[in-house]
Design a protein around this nucleic acid. Structure first.
Lengths: 333, 333
DNA sequence: GGAACTCGTGGAATCGATTACACGACTTCG
DNA sequence: CGAAGTCGTGTAATCGATTCCACGAGTTCC
């Protein structure tokens, strides 16, 4: 390469990084050589020397979950706009897989890590944070770790949901919770319980089912609910996949939604418009979350102070909890 | 690190790559030092020296499409089992984005590339193939390039679908095609046309709508079909997202599926069980495709002759084309 | 008892970039 | 006209691993 242009490697490097002190003559010769040879600089060598990879790692809990897919997509978009690439690791809700990916990403010397932790205390991640790896939590986080968090606050939306359900006459409300090891798994139950309290409703233990954010657990928990002597009138799933499982379980019993059991979900996804019936859900500003997370991480990487961000989720009413004639805000998007 | 263990870097390297000629004494000392320092080898430096990254690049057409999400997942799984990492690039059906990702991946010196090309002739990709970059096409391919292809053959399944539709009395069948620049975009139309011919049916130009594998195009094309003086009785979407758009369009007119218009789709996804009505689809062995593609690519990388693989797709009958009392093979999976 | 081997180890080259430093050729200015 | 800059360029060190080669110590074998 340097030979082709008749200059030294230093000059080639300077041209490629458009350093000011290069003569026009040398510049054109180098660019010509680049063209004829189809030369592309070796990113591996560059990273070794500069100690930066211009790459972010993103470890998400489950790629098959449309919520995380959308998150990943927006993360990649924003990162690309800021000049970074993204390497995605799929943890499949398994702490061991999560650690595997964190380790590989760290070995690759990514510039920063975006994580939606599967559990509450991976020593590996705590260690990375302590050693100063730029990190940002998205959606879920690990309490007590000094890392910015970008997430959605569902409190108001859940309150709206409970108001909606109460107005429709529902009094026995159950929830399919996520893993207690995750913040979202615990928090959604708490927020739901508080909202119920405002209407003088209880959330008995029998109405709290332990799920794992996967469809199968939604099915299992729902079957449990339906087997109760006094089954709930509403099942609220803490994520979209468990809602899918719940729908399956209800359907398998020959019961109808919403006439026999009402259904609502946390996380709105395009498919909820087309299910039978369309599902009432709490929508997170997913794309905005992904973008904000990247901005925070890049701020941290480039030496600016990163900020935690909390955005509001909102209720999207559809038909899965019953029709309310006065309430015609049925959404189509 | 070498200092901590009181040995040379060469010995450290030998221990970490478990080279046979290292004394037990040195080995334990090095491993102890690794432990206390939390040392992890720098993958960037290693890659520079060994000229291998143990990483595969996967460029897919659209991450938001559940078919590709599942493909990506199975690819990562198989790759991990074989000791490779995967970097995913999302082309969003845009050739420029596809090239961006291919270029970045090549710059990173990935060991091999798995692509589902968005268009028929990216010069960049042809070039990479010609220069000997290990490559394998998945799902879609570029004709005339000497690269193994791993894909599903839908011919038999489409024939089954047409038989099913014909039996239900449908005679006017339309298709929403994918981009002509993609093999799957063209091929699915051809296969459909041939299957129709077996039943003495034509596929008039008015019944071929040009889509781009995105939901919005499915909606637009379907509206066009419904505006025809003689609208089709069946709309067959060449992928799942366009089927979603078609369902939207039909619904927006106040028409019912399957009573007013029947609907079928290429690519089966979990959500199709829960749409209203459940959608009849052609299911690809997606996971198997991903795994086979990785095996072919790794074979190529490690010097074994890679093989093209073609697996059969199969018809999954649900209710979106009408009920047939004699046909009780309605699937729930 | 010495030649021939084996074994464990360290020194040093290497991968392909970036970048501090030196240097020669010009310019500028007192 | 000579000292002091400026400008463009090349030489060489460096990043952190891997790996070839050499070497000393201990074995084996005739």
């Amino acid at each position: 390469m340097a030979a082709e242009a008749g200059v030294s490697v230093a000059t080639v490097s300077r041209v490629l990084n458009d350093h000011p002190s290069v003569s026009d003559d040398a510049r054109t010769r180098v660019l010509a050589a680049v063209e004829t040879l189809g030369y592309r600089p070796n990113a591996v060598a560059r990273s070794l020397r500069t100690d930066q990879t211009h790459t972010l790692g993103l470890v998400i809990s489950d790629v098959m979950n449309p919520y995380f897919t959308e998150l990943a997509r927006s993360v990649e978009e924003e990162a690309r706009a800021l000049g970074y690439s993204v390497i995605i690791g799929n943890a499949d809700e398994r702490p061991d897989l999560q650690d595997h990916h964190v380790r590989t990403l760290l070995d690759r010397r990514i510039d920063g890590l975006l994580v939606s932790p599967t559990d509450g205390g991976s020593p590996l991640m705590l260690d990375a944070a302590r050693r100063g790896t730029p990190m940002v939590f998205v959606d879920r986080w690990i309490p007590g770790v000094d890392v910015p968090v970008v997430r959605a606050d569902g409190r108001a939306a859940v309150r709206d949901l409970v108001a909606h359900l109460h107005r429709l006459g529902h009094r026995r409300l159950a929830i399919i919770a996520g893993p207690a090891a995750t913040t979202t798994g615990r928090e959604r139950v708490e927020v739901f319980r508080e909202a119920l309290a405002e209407y003088g409703l209880e959330l008995p233990d029998a109405y709290i089912g332990q799920g794992d954010f996967q469809a199968e657990s939604g099915r299992r928990v729902t079957e449990g609910f339906l087997d109760l002597p006094e089954p709930p009138e509403v099942v609220f799933a803490a994520d979209n996949l468990m809602a899918l499982g719940a729908l399956d379980a209800v359907r398998a019993r020959g019961l109808r939604v919403p006439q026999d059991v009402a259904l609502a979900a946390f996380d709105d996804i395009p498919w909820f418009v087309h299910t039978d019936p369309p599902i009432t859900a709490i929508a997170q500003p997913t794309g905005e979350l992904g973008r904000a997370a990247v901005r925070a991480l890049v701020d941290r990487i480039e030496g600016r102070p990163p900020q935690s961000v909390t955005l509001a989720a909102r209720l999207v009413v559809r038909r899965s909890c019953g029709e309310n004639p006065t309430e015609v805000q049925r959404s189509t998007s």
